[in-house]
């Protein structure tokens, strides 16, 4: 038996951006579903229900985009668990081996769970794919948003996208990606819960405290 250690894994920017993303994604999904399928809850024509809900959606979108940018920056300056390399386990032989072992564990083929302090290999690969979904959401969302001010800075930056995809295709992507993200969130919460039980490293509380009680790598 090797000794347990208290390891500082998730630095402050990692935890802050994580919870900012959680708040932003929840806000964006709820307001987004309402914008897509609004209820007639306006009492008079001088109300502003949809206006405020859209305002919330756009504000949360800015918060989300900034949060993601900060996290992307931190993947270059943070510790090894937050480094961008952690999200590409398939680039190393060790990472591939661990990914295969973790996948086997998840699918009940094998009972052995590889030891990992940071993100496990399957999770980090999923996070990279989700990061691409986020980028897709930000690009499609802000492209549609930019049309409120044609010829403005944002429209000049993103307007060319409407040349490749029509507005309606962008909207379809924006809706579909949201459901994929919701699917990911269900998976993410479940997997963390499972790993909290199975790893006994305190993965759930580590997202609040930053510390895990584990053997060192």
């Amino acid at each position: 038996m090797s000794k347990l250690k208290i390891l500082y894994v998730w630095e402050i920017p990692v935890r802050v951006t994580h919870w900012v993303n959680v708040l932003a994604i929840v806000t964006l999904c709820i307001t987004g579903i309402f914008i897509g399928h609004p209820l007639s809850i306006g009492k008079s024509a001088s109300g502003f229900t949809m206006g405020w809900i859209r305002f919330l959606h756009f504000t949360a979108a800015y918060v989300f985009a900034i949060g993601l940018a900060v996290r992307a920056y931190w993947s270059f300056v943070g510790n090894k668990y937050s480094n961008w390399r952690a999200f590409f386990p398939f680039l190393t032989a060790d990472g591939r081996k661990k990914a295969a072992a973790t996948f086997k564990y998840y699918t009940f083929i094998d009972r052995d769970l590889p030891h990992t302090v940071g993100h496990n290999a399957v999770a980090s690969t999923a996070y990279f794919l989700v990061f691409l979904l986020y980028l897709g959401m930000i690009v499609t969302g802000f492209t549609l948003y930019s049309e409120h001010a044609p010829g403005g800075v944002m429209h000049k930056m993103l307007g060319w996208i409407t040349h490749i995809f029509s507005n309606q295709t962008l909207r379809l992507i924006h809706h579909s990606f949201m459901w994929l993200i919701i699917g990911f969130v269900i998976n993410h919460i479940y997997s963390c819960w499972l790993m909290d039980i199975k790893e006994r490293g305190g993965i759930m509380s580590s997202m609040f405290s930053g510390y895990k009680s584990m053997e060192e790598d």
Binding site: M1, K98, R111, D112, L113, P114, H115, K198, E215
Partner: peptide
């Protein structure tokens, strides 16, 4: 009774 959870595995790590 999943094996080696939370323990260091020399053959994998």
């Amino acid at each position: 009774e999943d094996k080696m959870e939370g323990k260091k595995r020399e053959d994998i790590n």
